[in-house]
Design a protein around this nucleic acid. Structure first.
Lengths: 121, 121, 121, 121
DNA sequence: GTGGTCTAGACCACT
DNA sequence: GTGGTCTAGACCACG
């Protein structure tokens, strides 16, 4: 967890995104116990309240659950993880195509751009 | 200019983006005179100050210039327009690939996704 | 009279300045007849009203006078021209020293800067 | 921050200049926290929006940055400050020499004037 | 009629 | 309490 934040958006929202990505990318395994909120807050260099807020949101989303007195865990529901991963991917694809279309770049060109610019990476 | 705004981001920023896209997509031609600030504000259903703020940003960016007491115009510098168009496209591509990579989806898969989901559009 | 105007300031004010400078620099001689307002406006590519406004200001300042039905002339009062020239020069010097002082640059340094940067011209 | 404004130029622009000068002259230190926008507005006797506008410009320039919900700070980039200081100084020198040249005063005379008039200060 | 500026006052999210 | 945004409404210089 690196702690570089964009000043334009709420920190807690950026935390949500980072942790969500760690889960759906598999970096945080299904069922794995998370460090304590305080610890997470420390390593991310944020206020514990802020980290707490982020975790609550992930809990609402179902990606994280709490065992009272025991800690917070990544959901064991791998299908949910997979589902959210696909949702996110789909979202990104749609965003990309929409953005390009708005700029006046067709679907075919959008793929070409991807191959050109992505290949140089 | 439709007037549907996303509550997450400042209205003026959304206006900037919309107008920028109208310019780089060619919907607003190079050198063309824009409607007056007041008129633009009316059709976008925002306060003139908000529209003004958006136009100032586009002016800083170079896409728009002002003739005192006469009105605002799309830049005559077509190369600048083209340059910004390419920048934006590149930005979108990089965002897309980055986002996908974060989710744990490879470059090759990112292209596949695009072809699958895009084709259904 | 070149006709490049800064959009930040009123055109008439820029005209006043340009003509004033032509007079105190000697480019327009004392007693010399000026072209007609229309002609001046044409060559400067401005609205005759705008040029007229500029000339009125110069007339108030004393640098220009009107002979009814005959035209406008640069004042014959060479002392006035000289006086205004000195005023302007003094004004510039004071501006310069003040500006530099505000930036935190001393009088001595201000002279050094002048010699360094001016020499490279 | 004294609150005497020249009616010829926008207040916000005059604020920008004053604060910029306080930064490059070292009166406001690199990294230093600025008073809140509201406070600055109060002491300068302007509307908070006007002060805000000035600060946004300084932020675009890089001399000021914002920590969300925490306040605004002078940049920690001392090189940038130094660079802008030099730019400003150079600008002033060029303006001075140009102005004098326009009036019909040579480079050598411009220096003499400076020594005469400046000495009497 | 054009853009530009300014004020007053309000509301919001964030920490 | 911090910055950010937005609205409403007013006034101004300019051409």
């Amino acid at each position: 967890m690196d702690y570089i934040f964009d000043n334009e958006r709420p920190i807690y929202a950026q935390l949500v995104e980072k942790i969500r990505i760690e889960i759906i990318s598999g970096k945080l395994k299904s069922g794995e116990r998370l460090p304590s909120v305080r610890e997470l807050a420390l390593t991310a260099r944020v206020n514990p309240n802020t980290m707490q807020k982020a975790l609550v949101e992930l809990e609402n989303e179902g990606l994280v659950y709490t065992e009272r007195t025991n800690g917070k865990f990544v959901t064991k529901d791998q299908k949910l993880i997979e589902k959210i991963k696909k949702e996110k991917a789909k979202e990104k694809v749609n965003n990309y195509l929409n953005d390009m279309k708005n700029i006046g770049i067709s679907y075919e060109e959008s793929i070409k751009y991807l191959q050109e610019l992505g290949g140089s990476k």
